[in-house]
Computed example of a mutant assay.
Amino acid sequence: MNRWIPTRRSYTEMKHEIQEPLELPAAYELVALDDSSNALEATVQLARQGGTEGTLVWTTQQLPGDFRPGKTWYSPDQGLYLALILEPEFAPEAAGQIALIGLLSMGMAIAEAVVPMTDLRYRWPNDLLLSGSKVGGVSLRRNLEEGWLVLGVSVNVGKEPAEVIDAGCVQVEGGNPELTPAALLQSFAREFLHWINRWDEEGLPAILGAMRGRWGVPGESVLVELDEDETLAGALQDVDEEGQLVVETATGPRRIALNEFFGL
């Protein structure tokens, strides 16, 4: 894959007010939703219609949608809900690694905005936790024949969803009531551009190195819902050099690949 620097860009203004101007790298073609549709679903539709790499769709409020098959993401207002079209030139088996890049990029963006010493952790491979509460997540959609991959990122910025027991929001858990979705979007856009190019140059070790120490401790209990019919329980062993989760189960070690988790 060549360095990811698309050049097309535009900005569609939201009908509801944005408090500060948006400044994103030229790599992005920014589309702000002016209704209450779902950012991930809207971006997948754009990709199917020929939307180009770098198209970034976002909103601060949206309808609930399937983040993974059978898994709904509830979206309170004052959130950051975005999805990005990519046109992969890398091998299909590496597609799941984009989720880790998205997760790390949002983690870095949030880390810049919260008070010092806030406990920020990742729950393999798609959840972001602050002070033990889930505040964000990532998802992937792909069509090999049409050649596109869509990364979805959702973050509870100002409100936590009432429907989710362990959820929180960044303003509260991170001690920064002034943080806005637009400010977080700008930070994420810069971080993602940095980390996807680091990944292109150095491979997955660059991403895993930056996430090291934030997965939890070996021996910690984990519960992984692979699909509607299979849930894996065991003790965390490691996240290996290929980004696979290694879990010690009652029947022995089990490795879960990124593509397996996201159904790619």
Rank of each mutant, 00 (worst) to 15 (best):
E248H: 13
V170K: 00
P64S: 02
A167T: 04
E178R: 12
L184V: 03
F90E: 11
D127K: 00
R123T: 13
R198Q: 13
F188V: 02
T231E: 05
L204W: 03
L140S: 12
N197G: 07
L82A: 13
W58A: 10
L24I: 10
I207P: 06
R254V: 04
L144Y: 12
N156A: 03
P92A: 00
P177R: 00
G137S: 07
G234V: 05
H16C: 14
E87N: 14
P64T: 03
E191D: 10
L236C: 08
G147V: 03
A233E: 06
D238N: 15
T249A: 07
A206K: 00
D227P: 08
M108G: 11
T43M: 01
G219H: 03
T55L: 04
V150W: 06
V246A: 03
P21C: 09
T59K: 09
S36D: 10
W58K: 11
L151K: 04
K15F: 06
T52I: 11
V246T: 05
M106Q: 02
S36R: 15
W124L: 03
R142S: 12
L46P: 06
E242R: 15
A233S: 05
T249C: 14
W124T: 03
Q97Y: 01
E163S: 15
Q61K: 10
Q61H: 08
P218R: 10
A113M: 02
D77P: 15
E29S: 14
G252A: 08
G79W: 08
L24C: 13
N143M: 11
L179C: 07
T12W: 13
Q19A: 13
V172T: 07
E160T: 13
G79M: 04
S221Y: 04
T72N: 05
E202K: 04
A250R: 14
I5H: 14
G152H: 06
S133A: 13
R9N: 15
L86F: 07
P21A: 08
L179M: 07
N143W: 06
L236R: 13
Q49G: 07
A167N: 02
M211I: 09
G152L: 09
L184C: 01
L46E: 08
E13V: 15
N259G: 06
K71Q: 15
M106W: 01
L46A: 06
L128M: 03
V246H: 02
V135G: 01
G168P: 07
L258K: 04
L151M: 10
W58M: 14
D35R: 13
E163N: 12
D166C: 11
G175F: 06
D200G: 12
P69K: 15
V115A: 02
L22D: 05
P116D: 09
L120K: 03
S133L: 12
R214A: 02
A42S: 12
T43C: 02
A206L: 01
L84K: 00
D77R: 14
L236S: 05
Q62M: 07
T7F: 14
E225R: 15
L46C: 03
I196A: 10
E20G: 11
P64W: 00
